[in-house]
Amino acid sequence: MSRVTVGPAATELAGEEFARLLRPGDVVLLSGPLGAGKTTFVRGLARGLGVSERATSPTFTLVRQHRCHNDRGIATLHHADVYRVTSLDEVLDLALGELVEEAAVAVVEWGELAAPVFGADVVTVSIAVTSDEGRTIDVDGAGARDRAEAMARWAS
């Protein structure tokens, strides 16, 4: 399932609408080259979950928690960026796969680098750069296939 965006605002909107498909316990792995728009997507996603502060890149903190306000039972968003991680122990140490069991979701930039840590039940979001302002956002993974209809509506 993929959705094409032109300009950062469109990617933010895609993230915001994508957030409505999320459920507590979800782990979303974001991939795409430097500057693809992963953080931009998360900014919209955070808004869609009812996070009031602006989501910024957690590059220097590895993971940042945001309190959410929505009616879907998602109380916390864990936003991680594992690009600068030098050992996988650091990713394991975050224990994101366990933290999401407590009414939370996790979104991990560069998450595919550490995919085995998160197991099979993930949603993957890959952003490809097609031009200066153009992006193609692809959604896949076992976590996406179990809500394929909603995902297809998001993509169209």
Binding site: L88, L92, W110, L113, V117
Partner: peptide, 18 residues
């Protein structure tokens, strides 16, 4: 014994190849 680690390490190395 985490079990997921070995796979994950292998995956991680590929980052530098990008």
């Amino acid at each position: 014994l985490y079990l997921r680690e070995a796979d994950a390490v292998a995956n991680f190395v590929t980052r530098d190849a990008r």
